[in-house]
Simulated assay, not measured.
Amino acid sequence: MLHVPPAPAPAQRSVLTALNSPTAVREAPTPALRAAQQPVTAESPLSVHVLDRITPSGHAPTRLTAWRFLLRTGGRAVAAADTMLTPDGWAFSHFFEGPYVTATEQALRQAEALPAAYQPRLLSVPELYMLTLWLHGDCAADATTGHPAPSDLLVPLAPAPPGIAAHRAHRFAELLPLLTRRLTPTPLLSSSA
């Protein structure tokens, strides 16, 4: 069962305003959104966190970068909308489509079938070109802060990096050694002359 926290009201308003703007939709690089014949709704708000590094002690600090909404029409997600935090608060950033939209929808359906309750978020690992559905075990937590707990689940979205199975739930503690190895810079070998 998923406990989806509400997005900040200004973030949701900015997405709805953009959806109702013919110019914003027409100029978006989203053919599926422009071709929608039925009304488009903004659903499933997910806070987007970025993981840039893992400390030597195994701590994985994250930073909130966006709120993402799946844009649905005709019973399926066809695009997504991101918001960003500006000095004046949350504002619409952009529309987009691609494999992560359908992969997010699939991962959310998989997570709904899990026996435990989770708070869904997205966790991006830019250095690995990896996006995951982060299933946080504390459903009452503030969705804008925190870091993955060892028992939290990460569901890598397709396409996932080589060696990491997409759409398979991994405990963060299980993925931590692999992520640490891949995110730790390899020291250059020095040659003595």
Rank of each mutant, 00 (worst) to 15 (best):
A149W: 04
A140C: 00
H170V: 01
A158S: 15
L135K: 04
A141M: 08
P161R: 12
H167M: 11
A141H: 05
M130Y: 05
P126D: 14
R171D: 05
P159F: 11
G146P: 07
I164C: 05
T180S: 14
T145R: 13
A140L: 13
L122F: 02
A165M: 12
C139R: 08
P156D: 11
L135M: 10
A158N: 12
L123G: 02
V155N: 06
L135C: 06
P150E: 04
L153K: 01
A116E: 15
L154M: 09
P126I: 09
L154H: 05
V155H: 02
Y129A: 15
L135G: 03
P162R: 14
L123C: 06
L175N: 08
L128M: 15
D142W: 00
E174M: 06
A149L: 10
R171K: 11
A173F: 01
A116F: 08
L176S: 08
P177D: 08
P177V: 07
C139G: 11
V155M: 15
L123V: 07
P156K: 09
A143N: 05
R181Y: 13
A116L: 13
H167G: 04
Q119M: 09
L154I: 08
P161T: 12
A169I: 03
E174D: 15
L179N: 07
I164R: 11
S151N: 13
T145P: 00
H170M: 03
A116G: 10
A149P: 00
V155K: 04
H136V: 03
A165H: 09
G163P: 10
V155F: 02
Q119W: 02
G137Y: 00
P161G: 11
L128D: 09
A141S: 12
A160C: 11
L122T: 03
L153Y: 07
L128V: 10
W134L: 03
L176A: 13
S151E: 09
P177L: 06
H136C: 11
P150W: 00
L131S: 13
L133C: 09
Y129Q: 15
P148C: 04
H167Y: 01
P126F: 09
L123N: 02
A173P: 01
A149D: 12
T145I: 07
V125A: 03
P177N: 07
P177I: 06
T132I: 05
A141I: 04
A166I: 08
L179E: 10
P126Q: 11
D142S: 10
A143W: 00
R171I: 00
S124G: 05
S151L: 06
R168Q: 14
S124L: 13
P120T: 12
G146I: 05
P148G: 03
G137E: 11
L175K: 07
R121A: 08
L123W: 06
E174H: 13
R121C: 04
P150N: 08
G146L: 07
L123E: 03
L122I: 04
L128G: 08
W134A: 01
R181T: 13
L157M: 05
G137N: 04
L131I: 14
